[in-house]
């Protein structure tokens, strides 16, 4: 059965993830060769509905839709009906009545895209909901891995940082496990939530153990307000005891990929040397993002074209 929405990698089958990655890889190769225009979404309209600020994810989705030939409308919810008190359900119904084909939603509350998807006839893509999921980010991470390492199955991926508040970590865990990778995690105990082992993660008690033998090392962004909320004493201390530096990277496989969902705090999650060094694919992840979002849009819209 055709999928109506992409709400998270928890719900996707391994085969669907494989298909998205393989489509994404093709788009990425073509983008690199200079192609800019496709017609898969010709005549469709895509609305980006962002209840939370974002520059790169929104821009990436909009470019992906434009490249596929769709019309794109963006709604900055911070400056629209929300301030007039309109609910998410009512906004969704309104956009549905305007015959919008795809809604791309970013929202500070986990589960909001599901609520929208249950309300509207349009396809819904989750562009990040609270601390729940960020499927397109995990797919672009996996795309980068697949492109450079040739596979996902059997890889060891180390994820370090603010796991508790990270939708990126959750989506990566679900997707990577489905495709047969190992996922190790490390965070200050204050930022490591319960139950990740039950979801298949290997919970580590040191940076070194987490990174040991890893093919991929992923740093997560630390929000500055976490310090004020009492999760750790200072950014300096965070960098010293929990950051990823050259010494920690010694434990990874030689040439291991360094990834980060961005924007990165230089010298905190990762040292500047690593960010700008040869192992870093942080910049290359951005193009992977456009490619994989094209694959997501195509997946939802393709069968309607027949």
């Amino acid at each position: 059965m055709a999928r109506k929405d992409i709400l998270g990698l928890y719900d996707l089958e391994a085969g669907e993830i494989e298909a998205l990655l393989s489509d994404g890889l093709q788009y990425k190769a073509l983008l690199k060769r200079g192609e800019r225009q496709w017609s898969e979404l010709c005549g469709k309209s895509v609305v980006t509905l962002f209840y939370e600020n974002s520059t790169r994810t929104r821009c990436s989705f909009e470019l992906a839709a434009v490249r596929l030939g769709a019309h794109v409308v963006n709604l900055s919810m911070a400056t629209s009906s929300v301030q007039k008190g309109e609910t998410l359900v009512d906004t969704g119904k309104t956009l549905d009545a305007m015959k919008c084909d795809v809604m791309v939603i970013r929202h500070p509350t986990g589960g909001a895209p599901r609520l929208l998807a249950g309300t509207v006839k349009a396809h819904v893509i989750n562009a990040g909901d609270g601390m729940n999921e960020h499927p397109s980010q995990a797919l672009l991470d996996m795309l980068t891995m697949k492109e450079h390492l040739g596979r996902i199955a059997g890889l060891k991926v180390a994820i370090l940082g603010d796991i508790r508040h990270s939708r990126v970590a959750r989506s990566n865990l679900y997707g990577l496990k489905k495709l047969g990778a190992r996922v190790s995690m490390f965070a200050p105990r204050t930022l490591m939530p319960d139950g990740l082992d039950r979801m298949g993660a290997e919970i580590c008690t040191s940076r070194e153990a987490c990174v040991e033998g890893a093919d991929v090392v992923m740093g997560l962004r630390i929000q500055l307000e976490r310090q004020k909320a009492g999760y750790f004493p200072s950014l300096g201390e965070y960098a010293k005891y929990y950051g990823i530096d050259e010494n920690v990277m010694q434990y990874a496989k030689p040439g291991a990929l360094i990834l980060h969902p961005g924007p990165v705090n230089r010298g905190i999650e990762l040292t500047a040397g690593l960010i700008d060094g040869p192992q870093s694919h942080i910049e290359d992840q951005v193009l992977s993002g456009v490619a994989v979002r094209m694959a997501m849009l195509k997946m939802l819209c393709q069968e309607e074209r027949i």
């Binding site: 986990g110 959750r170 319960d194």
Partner: peptide
């Protein structure tokens, strides 16, 4: 707070 809060990302 437990497995399901981690799974859903709900606080």
């Amino acid at each position: 707070e437990g497995y399901y809060s981690t799974r859903t990302g709900l606080k």
